[in-house]
């Protein structure tokens, strides 16, 4: 049987070294090359890096997340939720829904505008010298802090408005401060509320 003859000769050939010397060198070179290749082209073993030539040691360059523009996102929230009353033009409806373009409420205190959006408004209100009387629904259970901040940032920057952006943190702070409130705001109550954002 062949396998046995080869077994026997195994023992005869024990004096041979395992491999010829050149093979050891060649294999060592291959292993070193393999390690280097793996380091260079493995993209840091990330599931997000598809181009293997992306350099991942040192500062990470590849796979940068797309920058979100709150104004663009806010515009979408606005069109979906607000434009029915305040109109896409931001001009509102005379006597009912106040305009947002140039509105002193929108451009004024950050805390106030957040409060209005969170809890809504009831009763008469005067904007840009004209009276309006329509109810605004509370949005605190419909939109999260991020969406509220986006839509506020949007209405404070479109139609010629130019006020500072609102961050989700600001919304969260106001929401926390007014956590106990259930009723909508009236113009009077709003005037009484603190102008500054809670610390």
């Amino acid at each position: 049987m062949s396998d046995h003859s080869s077994n026997q000769s195994n023992e005869n050939s024990k004096h041979q070294s395992m491999l010829p010397t050149w093979m050891y060198w060649f294999f060592a070179v291959l292993l070193v090359w393999g390690g280097a290749y793996l380091m260079r082209y493995s993209g840091g073993f990330s599931g997000e890096i598809y181009d293997e030539s992306t350099v991942t040691y040192g500062p990470v360059k590849g796979g940068a997340a797309a920058v979100e523009d709150p104004k663009v996102l806010g515009a979408r929230v606005f069109k979906a939720n607000c434009a029915q009353c305040h109109q896409v033009t931001g001009l509102g409806v005379e006597g009912q829904y106040p305009p947002l373009a140039g509105s002193e409420f929108v451009l004024g205190s950050e805390a106030h505008v957040i409060r209005i959006l969170l809890h809504g408004m009831v009763g008469p209100i005067t904007v840009k010298g004209k009276p309006y009387n329509g109810n605004m629904a509370p949005w605190k259970d419909v939109l999260d802090d991020k969406k509220i901040s986006q839509v506020l940032t949007y209405i404070r920057s479109d139609w010629g408005n130019n006020a500072t952006p609102i961050t989700p943190e600001m919304v969260a702070a106001v929401r926390k401060q007014e956590a106990a409130r259930t009723a909508s705001w009236t113009e009077k109550e709003l005037e009484a509320a603190p102008n500054q954002l809670p610390k």
Partner: peptide
Amino acid sequence: LLSLNRTYALPEAP
């Protein structure tokens, strides 16, 4: 075939 369109942007494929 006409639905094959991968020209939109994805963050992992700059």
